[in-house]
């Protein structure tokens, strides 16, 4: 299994977001503010975001954990933890 550091996870998140919302500028994202306040994404976009993370990282993100992906920082935390847990 590949392991990822926080920086890599951050890049993977931005890749996934960029595929859904091409106008997103990583530098413009405030890491503590909810992503959905800063990017115009709906539930369909969000599901695609989760699917992309699933494809890249190989982890299944259950619906009950969606709240952990609210902000950039919490998403990095959550995904780093999940990736480390399967080692």
């Amino acid at each position: 299994m590949t392991s990822y550091n926080r920086e890599q996870i951050r890049d993977i998140i931005f890749d996934a977001l960029g595929a859904i919302a091409p106008e997103v500028e990583p530098a413009m994202i405030a890491p503590e503010r909810p992503l959905r306040e800063q990017i115009d994404i709906d539930s369909f976009d969000f599901l695609n975001f989760i699917i992309r993370l699933h494809e890249t990282l190989g982890i299944d993100i259950p619906e009950k954990d969606y709240a952990e992906l609210l902000t950039l920082n919490s998403a990095v935390e959550y995904l780093t933890r999940r990736c480390a847990a399967r080692e």
Partner: peptide, 17 residues
């Protein structure tokens, strides 16, 4: 829907709508 989606992989989940 919650129960149903729990059984499904992320690519097969249904949106609430």
């Amino acid at each position: 829907l919650e129960t149903e989606n729990l059984k499904r992989s992320v690519t097969e989940r249904l949106l609430p709508v």
